[in-house]
């Protein structure tokens, strides 16, 4: 047998996984942003006066000039539909029972990716969309405290 010939007895693959389990802290800005969402039902923005740039979700430094951001504001619950997609497969490529709508709702100079509750035919890019929050006692300080976004006139 030559060295480059494959042994017929050889197992073709070795199966395994990478055991990576994580616990992520929310950090300086995340603490403030997600506690406001959980306790007050607010989506917060932070503003850099030097770069005239508004970050949503709020962050504690400006990525353009690295200044600390001290001007935090309530961004309201209504943003603008920047783009959306209708998903027919899940993340493993399996067909979904019901197609799922995902959108990018812009707030300030940033925005949030989330699920949409809407009839796909009614959606228009540029239309106002409102965050639907879970009731306060069910909120845990998570992006899922926002249940979804709906067209404002729904």
């Amino acid at each position: 047998m030559t060295l480059l010939e494959r042994d017929r007895e050889a197992p073709s693959a070795w199966k395994g996984s990478l055991p990576v389990t994580s616990r992520y802290t929310y950090g300086l800005a995340g603490e403030r942003f997600f506690r406001a969402l959980k306790d007050e039902g607010k989506i917060l923005a932070s503003y850099c006066p030097k770069c005239d740039h508004t970050y949503v979700p709020a962050v504690n430094f400006c990525e353009r000039c690295l200044s600390e951001l001290t001007e935090w504001q309530d961004a309201g619950l209504v943003g603008v539909l920047h783009t959306y997609t209708l998903l027919f497969v899940d993340f493993e490529g399996q067909p979904l029972d019901e197609p799922e709508l995902i959108g990018f709702i812009s707030f300030g100079d940033g925005g949030i990716i989330h699920k949409l509750d809407a009839n796909p035919d009614e959606l228009e890019i540029g239309m106002p969309m409102k965050a639907v929050l879970k009731p306060q006692k069910e909120r845990s300080g998570s992006i899922l405290d926002i249940r979804c976004f709906q067209p404002v006139n729904k």
């Binding site: 990478l18 990576v20 994580s22 992520y24 802290t25 929310y26 997600f34 506690r35």
Partner: peptide, 10 residues
């Protein structure tokens, strides 16, 4: 502190 657990599905 707020935190979240997750696992890499690899």
């Amino acid at each position: 502190v707020l935190f979240v657990h997750d696992a890499l599905k690899a």
